[in-house]
Amino acid sequence: MKTVHSILAAFVIIAIAMVVFNAVMSLKREEKFKAGDRKLGLVALILTHIQLLTGLVTYYISPWYQTLKNVGMGKAMKDAELRLMTVEHPLTMIVAIVLITIGWSRHKKLAEDQAKFKSFAIFYGIAFVLILSRIPWAQWI
């Protein structure tokens, strides 16, 4: 399951980067919001939600979770690696996925093309930075 979670993470990062890049470039060019722009945002949304599900399964079967249960939250917060794997990574990823979901929902309510691109650029962009900040690079694959 860890391998699936790691491979899917690469697709999630690429998809979100594409959405943010497309939104920023389309804002600069003052383009119309097209079906392809919507589909790109939707693909990133779906991938992040699938990643959340695989992440939750991976979390609860991981040795990190077992260690957390054994040592307790107090000791886990004093260990940087354990804290990253059991608290910071999962919590930050959930916040990022919530931001992507808000960006998706918000864009649907907006009428102006530029506002839709701004919604994607801001919410998916912040989520992208959060995701990159808390990927356990040393643990990846």
Rank of each mutant, 00 (worst) to 15 (best):
L53C: 11
K34G: 12
Q51D: 01
F128G: 05
A138D: 06
P136K: 04
L99R: 01
Q51V: 08
I131N: 02
H49I: 08
L91C: 14
G41I: 01
D79I: 00
G74N: 11
G74E: 09
P136T: 00
K116E: 03
K109S: 14
L84R: 05
T86V: 07
E88Y: 15
Q114V: 09
T58D: 14
L47Q: 00
K109T: 11
G55V: 12
D113T: 13
R106N: 09
L40G: 01
G55H: 05
L91Q: 15
I46D: 01
I50C: 01
Q114W: 06
L47A: 03
S105R: 11
V87F: 15
L132H: 05
E88L: 15
E31T: 14
L99A: 00
G36S: 15
L84A: 13
R106Q: 07
G41V: 00
G36C: 12
H89Q: 06
T67Y: 07
L130A: 00
A35Y: 14
A138Q: 06
R106Y: 09
Y60L: 06
F128P: 02
K116G: 00
Q66R: 12
T48P: 08
R83D: 06
V129G: 02
Y59L: 13
T54C: 08
H89W: 09
T48H: 06
Y124P: 02
L130S: 00
E31Q: 14
S133T: 03
K32C: 11
T58R: 13
V95D: 04
I122A: 04
A127W: 00
L84K: 04
V57T: 10
F117L: 06
G125Y: 05
L132S: 06
K109Q: 14
S119R: 09
I94R: 07
S105L: 12
F128I: 08
I100A: 03
L82E: 05
H107W: 07
E112Q: 15
S26A: 14
K109A: 10
S119A: 08
Q51P: 04
I94T: 08
L91F: 15
M25N: 12
L52W: 10
V71R: 01
